[in-house]
Amino acid sequence: MDRASHLSTIVDLSPAQWTLSGSAPKERHSLDLQSFLSQLLIFLNSHVACKDQNTLAIFGALPGRSVMLYPSTTQAAGSNSADANTYRPFKVLDSTVIDSLSKQVEALDASETEAPVGLVGALTKALCYINRVAALATENDQTVAVDPRILILSVSPDQSASYIPIMNSIFSAQKLKVTIDVCKVYGPDSVFLQQAAHLTGGSYIHLDRPDALLQYLTMSFLPPPSIRQLLAVPTQDKVDFRAACFCHKRIVDIGFVCSVCLSIFCQPVPVCSTCRTKFPIKTLQRLNAARPTILTSAATPTSGNASTFPSSTTNRVATTNGNGPNPNGVR
Protein backbone atom coordinates (compact mmCIF):
# COMPACT_ATOMS: atom_id res chain seq x y z
CA MET A 1 0.00 0.00 0.00
CA ASP A 2 2.45 2.59 -1.14
CA ARG A 3 -0.04 5.14 -2.39
CA ALA A 4 -3.04 6.72 -0.80
CA SER A 5 -6.44 5.39 -1.71
CA HIS A 6 -9.87 6.88 -1.58
CA LEU A 7 -12.93 5.01 -0.37
CA SER A 8 -16.51 6.21 -0.72
CA THR A 9 -18.93 4.08 1.25
CA ILE A 10 -22.63 4.01 0.51
CA VAL A 11 -24.76 2.71 3.36
CA ASP A 12 -28.26 1.53 2.63
CA LEU A 13 -30.35 2.74 5.59
CA SER A 14 -33.80 1.45 4.74
CA PRO A 15 -35.60 1.22 8.11
CA ALA A 16 -37.99 -1.42 6.83
CA GLN A 17 -35.25 -3.70 5.51
CA TRP A 18 -33.12 -3.30 8.64
CA THR A 19 -36.05 -4.24 10.83
CA LEU A 20 -36.50 -7.38 8.76
CA SER A 21 -32.80 -8.13 8.91
CA GLY A 22 -32.62 -7.62 12.66
CA SER A 23 -35.68 -9.70 13.41
CA ALA A 24 -34.56 -12.73 11.42
CA PRO A 25 -34.03 -15.79 13.64
CA LYS A 26 -30.68 -15.96 15.41
CA GLU A 27 -29.69 -19.30 13.90
CA ARG A 28 -29.85 -17.59 10.47
CA HIS A 29 -27.01 -15.36 11.73
CA SER A 30 -29.06 -12.20 11.58
CA LEU A 31 -27.54 -8.76 11.87
CA ASP A 32 -29.23 -5.68 13.28
CA LEU A 33 -28.45 -2.06 12.50
CA GLN A 34 -26.71 -1.51 15.84
CA SER A 35 -24.07 -4.17 15.38
CA PHE A 36 -23.88 -3.41 11.67
CA LEU A 37 -22.86 0.16 12.43
CA SER A 38 -20.28 -0.78 15.04
CA GLN A 39 -18.69 -3.34 12.69
CA LEU A 40 -18.76 -0.87 9.83
CA LEU A 41 -17.07 1.84 11.91
CA ILE A 42 -14.28 -0.55 12.83
CA PHE A 43 -13.76 -1.26 9.14
CA LEU A 44 -13.73 2.44 8.25
CA ASN A 45 -11.29 3.13 11.07
CA SER A 46 -8.97 0.49 9.72
CA HIS A 47 -9.13 2.08 6.28
CA VAL A 48 -8.10 5.41 7.78
CA ALA A 49 -5.40 3.71 9.82
CA CYS A 50 -3.88 1.86 6.87
CA LYS A 51 -2.25 4.97 5.53
CA ASP A 52 -2.10 8.53 6.66
CA GLN A 53 -3.24 10.01 3.36
CA ASN A 54 -6.14 7.62 2.87
CA THR A 55 -9.36 9.51 2.36
CA LEU A 56 -12.90 8.51 3.15
CA ALA A 57 -16.39 9.66 2.37
CA ILE A 58 -19.63 8.14 3.61
CA PHE A 59 -23.01 8.53 1.96
CA GLY A 60 -26.30 7.38 3.37
CA ALA A 61 -29.18 6.18 1.21
CA LEU A 62 -32.33 6.97 3.18
CA PRO A 63 -35.95 6.47 2.13
CA GLY A 64 -36.53 8.82 -0.79
CA ARG A 65 -33.29 10.75 -0.44
CA SER A 66 -29.57 10.53 0.08
CA VAL A 67 -27.15 12.44 2.30
CA MET A 68 -23.46 12.78 2.81
CA LEU A 69 -22.63 11.62 6.32
CA TYR A 70 -18.89 12.17 6.32
CA PRO A 71 -16.97 14.41 5.79
CA SER A 72 -19.78 16.59 6.97
CA THR A 73 -19.89 20.22 5.88
CA THR A 74 -21.13 21.13 9.32
CA GLN A 75 -18.17 19.47 10.98
CA ALA A 76 -19.00 18.93 14.64
CA ALA A 77 -16.21 21.16 15.87
CA GLY A 78 -17.61 21.19 19.39
CA SER A 79 -17.09 17.49 19.94
CA ASN A 80 -13.44 17.98 20.60
CA SER A 81 -13.74 16.24 23.91
CA ALA A 82 -10.44 14.47 23.54
CA ASP A 83 -10.53 10.91 24.69
CA ALA A 84 -7.21 9.75 26.05
CA ASN A 85 -7.93 6.20 24.95
CA THR A 86 -8.95 6.91 21.36
CA TYR A 87 -6.90 7.86 18.34
CA ARG A 88 -8.26 11.27 17.39
CA PRO A 89 -9.14 10.63 13.71
CA PHE A 90 -11.16 7.58 14.81
CA LYS A 91 -12.99 9.66 17.35
CA VAL A 92 -13.79 12.41 14.85
CA LEU A 93 -14.98 9.89 12.29
CA ASP A 94 -17.12 7.93 14.71
CA SER A 95 -18.79 10.91 16.30
CA THR A 96 -19.42 12.70 12.99
CA VAL A 97 -21.03 9.65 11.45
CA ILE A 98 -23.14 8.83 14.49
CA ASP A 99 -24.19 12.46 14.92
CA SER A 100 -25.26 13.07 11.35
CA LEU A 101 -26.88 9.65 11.19
CA SER A 102 -29.03 10.21 14.26
CA LYS A 103 -29.95 13.66 12.93
CA GLN A 104 -31.11 12.11 9.68
CA VAL A 105 -33.01 9.30 11.34
CA GLU A 106 -34.80 11.72 13.65
CA ALA A 107 -35.82 13.82 10.67
CA LEU A 108 -37.42 10.75 9.07
CA ASP A 109 -41.16 10.86 8.84
CA ALA A 110 -42.90 7.70 9.99
CA SER A 111 -44.92 7.70 6.79
CA GLU A 112 -41.89 7.54 4.52
CA THR A 113 -40.03 4.65 6.12
CA GLU A 114 -41.40 2.28 3.52
CA ALA A 115 -40.27 4.41 0.58
CA PRO A 116 -37.44 2.98 -1.56
CA VAL A 117 -34.01 4.30 -0.61
CA GLY A 118 -32.20 6.93 -2.66
CA LEU A 119 -29.44 4.63 -3.84
CA VAL A 120 -29.09 6.42 -7.18
CA GLY A 121 -28.66 9.77 -5.45
CA ALA A 122 -26.01 8.38 -3.12
CA LEU A 123 -24.18 6.75 -6.01
CA THR A 124 -24.16 9.87 -8.19
CA LYS A 125 -23.09 11.99 -5.21
CA ALA A 126 -20.23 9.64 -4.54
CA LEU A 127 -19.17 9.96 -8.19
CA CYS A 128 -19.42 13.77 -8.12
CA TYR A 129 -17.35 13.80 -4.96
CA ILE A 130 -14.65 11.60 -6.49
CA ASN A 131 -14.69 13.73 -9.63
CA ARG A 132 -14.10 16.86 -7.58
CA VAL A 133 -11.39 15.31 -5.43
CA ALA A 134 -9.59 14.13 -8.57
CA ALA A 135 -9.95 17.55 -10.23
CA LEU A 136 -8.60 19.32 -7.15
CA ALA A 137 -5.67 16.96 -6.93
CA THR A 138 -4.63 17.53 -10.55
CA GLU A 139 -5.06 21.27 -10.13
CA ASN A 140 -2.78 21.34 -7.12
CA ASP A 141 -0.37 19.02 -8.88
CA GLN A 142 -0.72 16.40 -6.22
CA THR A 143 -0.55 12.78 -7.06
CA VAL A 144 -4.11 11.67 -7.43
CA ALA A 145 -5.20 9.08 -4.95
CA VAL A 146 -4.93 5.83 -6.89
CA ASP A 147 -7.89 3.67 -7.67
CA PRO A 148 -10.75 5.45 -6.00
CA ARG A 149 -13.49 3.01 -5.15
CA ILE A 150 -17.05 2.90 -3.99
CA LEU A 151 -18.32 0.29 -1.54
CA ILE A 152 -22.06 -0.24 -1.50
CA LEU A 153 -23.54 -1.96 1.55
CA SER A 154 -26.97 -2.92 0.34
CA VAL A 155 -30.00 -4.37 2.12
CA SER A 156 -32.82 -3.27 -0.18
CA PRO A 157 -34.05 -5.21 -3.20
CA ASP A 158 -33.58 -3.79 -6.73
CA GLN A 159 -35.81 -0.94 -7.70
CA SER A 160 -36.32 -1.54 -11.37
CA ALA A 161 -37.39 2.08 -11.85
CA SER A 162 -33.82 3.17 -11.24
CA TYR A 163 -32.39 0.86 -13.89
CA ILE A 164 -31.30 3.58 -16.32
CA PRO A 165 -29.79 5.96 -13.73
CA ILE A 166 -27.86 3.08 -12.18
CA MET A 167 -26.52 2.01 -15.56
CA ASN A 168 -25.53 5.61 -16.33
CA SER A 169 -23.69 5.77 -13.01
CA ILE A 170 -21.88 2.54 -13.81
CA PHE A 171 -20.64 3.93 -17.12
CA SER A 172 -19.46 7.13 -15.47
CA ALA A 173 -17.64 5.05 -12.89
CA GLN A 174 -15.92 3.23 -15.74
CA LYS A 175 -14.93 6.56 -17.25
CA LEU A 176 -13.50 7.80 -13.95
CA LYS A 177 -11.81 4.42 -13.41
CA VAL A 178 -13.69 3.93 -10.17
CA THR A 179 -14.15 0.40 -8.87
CA ILE A 180 -17.55 -0.42 -7.42
CA ASP A 181 -17.65 -3.09 -4.71
CA VAL A 182 -20.93 -4.44 -3.50
CA CYS A 183 -21.61 -6.15 -0.21
CA LYS A 184 -25.13 -7.54 -0.09
CA VAL A 185 -25.81 -7.72 3.64
CA TYR A 186 -29.42 -8.80 3.54
CA GLY A 187 -32.05 -9.70 1.00
CA PRO A 188 -32.05 -11.34 -2.42
CA ASP A 189 -29.27 -10.82 -4.98
CA SER A 190 -29.39 -7.53 -6.80
CA VAL A 191 -29.23 -7.82 -10.58
CA PHE A 192 -28.15 -4.20 -11.07
CA LEU A 193 -25.48 -4.18 -8.41
CA GLN A 194 -24.06 -7.45 -9.76
CA GLN A 195 -23.67 -5.74 -13.11
CA ALA A 196 -22.15 -2.68 -11.43
CA ALA A 197 -19.45 -4.73 -9.74
CA HIS A 198 -18.82 -6.83 -12.83
CA LEU A 199 -18.51 -3.88 -15.21
CA THR A 200 -16.18 -1.86 -12.99
CA GLY A 201 -13.97 -4.77 -11.97
CA GLY A 202 -15.13 -4.85 -8.37
CA SER A 203 -16.36 -7.71 -6.21
CA TYR A 204 -19.93 -8.59 -5.43
CA ILE A 205 -20.32 -10.53 -2.23
CA HIS A 206 -23.55 -11.89 -0.85
CA LEU A 207 -23.07 -12.50 2.86
CA ASP A 208 -23.89 -16.04 3.95
CA ARG A 209 -23.27 -15.05 7.55
CA PRO A 210 -24.22 -11.39 7.97
CA ASP A 211 -23.12 -11.43 11.62
CA ALA A 212 -19.54 -11.92 10.41
CA LEU A 213 -19.72 -8.70 8.39
CA LEU A 214 -16.48 -7.28 9.73
CA GLN A 215 -14.53 -10.31 8.61
CA TYR A 216 -15.92 -10.12 5.07
CA LEU A 217 -15.17 -6.42 4.95
CA THR A 218 -11.57 -6.70 6.13
CA MET A 219 -10.69 -9.71 4.06
CA SER A 220 -12.25 -8.60 0.79
CA PHE A 221 -12.74 -4.87 0.75
CA LEU A 222 -9.94 -3.36 2.83
CA PRO A 223 -7.10 -3.87 0.33
CA PRO A 224 -7.39 -1.48 -2.63
CA PRO A 225 -8.06 -3.07 -6.05
CA SER A 226 -4.40 -2.88 -7.11
CA ILE A 227 -3.41 -5.14 -4.24
CA ARG A 228 -6.42 -7.38 -4.60
CA GLN A 229 -4.97 -8.75 -7.82
CA LEU A 230 -2.42 -10.52 -5.66
CA LEU A 231 -5.00 -11.87 -3.25
CA ALA A 232 -7.63 -14.53 -3.59
CA VAL A 233 -10.70 -12.37 -3.19
CA PRO A 234 -14.05 -14.13 -3.39
CA THR A 235 -15.12 -13.92 -7.02
CA GLN A 236 -18.51 -13.38 -8.40
CA ASP A 237 -20.61 -16.34 -9.23
CA LYS A 238 -23.06 -15.98 -12.11
CA VAL A 239 -23.72 -12.48 -13.37
CA ASP A 240 -27.22 -11.79 -14.41
CA PHE A 241 -27.29 -9.52 -17.47
CA ARG A 242 -31.00 -8.96 -17.38
CA ALA A 243 -32.60 -5.58 -17.84
CA ALA A 244 -35.75 -3.82 -16.71
CA CYS A 245 -38.44 -3.17 -19.31
CA PHE A 246 -39.44 0.44 -19.85
CA CYS A 247 -43.17 -0.21 -19.77
CA HIS A 248 -43.74 -2.00 -16.47
CA LYS A 249 -40.27 -1.82 -14.94
CA ARG A 250 -40.33 -5.59 -14.87
CA ILE A 251 -36.99 -7.42 -14.99
CA VAL A 252 -36.93 -9.48 -18.18
CA ASP A 253 -34.56 -11.96 -19.81
CA ILE A 254 -36.12 -11.79 -23.28
CA GLY A 255 -37.29 -8.41 -24.40
CA PHE A 256 -38.61 -6.55 -27.42
CA VAL A 257 -36.25 -3.79 -28.39
CA CYS A 258 -36.98 -0.67 -30.44
CA SER A 259 -34.39 -0.49 -33.20
CA VAL A 260 -34.34 3.30 -33.16
CA CYS A 261 -33.72 4.04 -29.48
CA LEU A 262 -33.12 0.57 -27.99
CA SER A 263 -35.90 0.88 -25.44
CA ILE A 264 -36.81 -2.51 -23.98
CA PHE A 265 -40.39 -3.75 -23.72
CA CYS A 266 -41.67 -6.95 -22.16
CA GLN A 267 -44.36 -7.46 -24.82
CA PRO A 268 -44.77 -6.38 -28.44
CA VAL A 269 -46.01 -2.81 -28.60
CA PRO A 270 -47.33 -0.97 -31.66
CA VAL A 271 -45.63 2.31 -30.81
CA CYS A 272 -42.39 2.93 -28.96
CA SER A 273 -43.24 4.91 -25.85
CA THR A 274 -39.83 6.55 -25.74
CA CYS A 275 -39.28 7.81 -29.27
CA ARG A 276 -42.83 7.50 -30.65
CA THR A 277 -41.71 5.29 -33.52
CA LYS A 278 -44.50 3.20 -35.03
CA PHE A 279 -43.59 -0.38 -35.75
CA PRO A 280 -44.78 -2.26 -38.85
CA ILE A 281 -47.90 -4.37 -38.36
CA LYS A 282 -46.10 -7.29 -39.98
CA THR A 283 -43.50 -7.33 -37.25
CA LEU A 284 -46.10 -7.22 -34.53
CA GLN A 285 -47.96 -10.18 -36.00
CA ARG A 286 -44.76 -12.11 -36.37
CA LEU A 287 -43.65 -11.38 -32.81
CA ASN A 288 -47.04 -12.15 -31.36
CA ALA A 289 -47.01 -15.44 -33.23
CA ALA A 290 -43.59 -16.19 -31.83
CA ARG A 291 -44.45 -15.43 -28.24
CA PRO A 292 -46.18 -18.64 -27.14
CA THR A 293 -43.22 -20.59 -28.46
CA ILE A 294 -40.88 -18.54 -26.35
CA LEU A 295 -42.81 -19.38 -23.26
CA THR A 296 -42.98 -23.10 -23.99
CA SER A 297 -39.38 -23.37 -25.05
CA ALA A 298 -38.38 -21.57 -21.89
CA ALA A 299 -40.29 -24.14 -19.90
CA THR A 300 -38.69 -27.08 -21.69
CA PRO A 301 -35.11 -25.95 -22.16
CA THR A 302 -33.68 -28.58 -24.49
CA SER A 303 -35.76 -29.98 -27.24
CA GLY A 304 -34.20 -32.96 -28.99
CA ASN A 305 -34.17 -31.55 -32.50
CA ALA A 306 -32.62 -28.26 -31.47
CA SER A 307 -29.06 -29.49 -31.58
CA THR A 308 -29.46 -31.05 -35.00
CA PHE A 309 -30.67 -27.77 -36.38
CA PRO A 310 -27.88 -26.58 -38.70
CA SER A 311 -26.62 -23.24 -37.53
CA SER A 312 -26.04 -21.88 -40.99
CA THR A 313 -29.71 -22.05 -41.83
CA THR A 314 -30.86 -20.98 -38.42
CA ASN A 315 -34.11 -19.16 -38.70
CA ARG A 316 -33.70 -15.70 -37.40
CA VAL A 317 -36.74 -16.06 -35.24
CA ALA A 318 -38.16 -12.61 -35.16
CA THR A 319 -34.87 -10.95 -34.61
CA THR A 320 -33.23 -8.38 -36.75
CA ASN A 321 -34.52 -8.90 -40.23
CA GLY A 322 -37.31 -6.41 -40.30
CA ASN A 323 -38.14 -7.21 -43.88
CA GLY A 324 -37.08 -10.81 -43.63
CA PRO A 325 -39.16 -13.13 -45.80
CA ASN A 326 -40.03 -15.10 -42.72
CA PRO A 327 -43.38 -14.03 -41.31
CA ASN A 328 -43.89 -17.12 -39.24
CA GLY A 329 -40.30 -17.89 -38.53
CA VAL A 330 -40.88 -20.37 -35.75
CA ARG A 331 -41.28 -23.99 -36.44
Binding site: D240, F241, R242, D253, F256, T277, K278
Partner: peptide
Protein backbone atom coordinates in the same frame (compact mmCIF):
# COMPACT_ATOMS: atom_id res chain seq x y z
CA UNK B 1 -44.42 3.83 -40.35
CA UNK B 2 -40.80 4.76 -40.54
CA UNK B 3 -39.44 2.00 -42.76
CA UNK B 4 -36.22 1.98 -40.83
CA UNK B 5 -37.91 1.25 -37.51
CA UNK B 6 -38.62 -2.19 -36.25
CA UNK B 7 -39.17 -4.10 -33.07
CA UNK B 8 -36.51 -6.69 -32.40
CA UNK B 9 -36.54 -9.69 -30.11
CA UNK B 10 -33.45 -9.84 -27.93
CA UNK B 11 -32.32 -12.08 -25.11
CA UNK B 12 -30.29 -11.04 -22.10
CA UNK B 13 -27.95 -13.86 -21.06
CA UNK B 14 -26.52 -15.05 -17.78
CA UNK B 15 -22.76 -14.97 -17.59
Amino acid sequence: ANPAADLMLMGFPTR
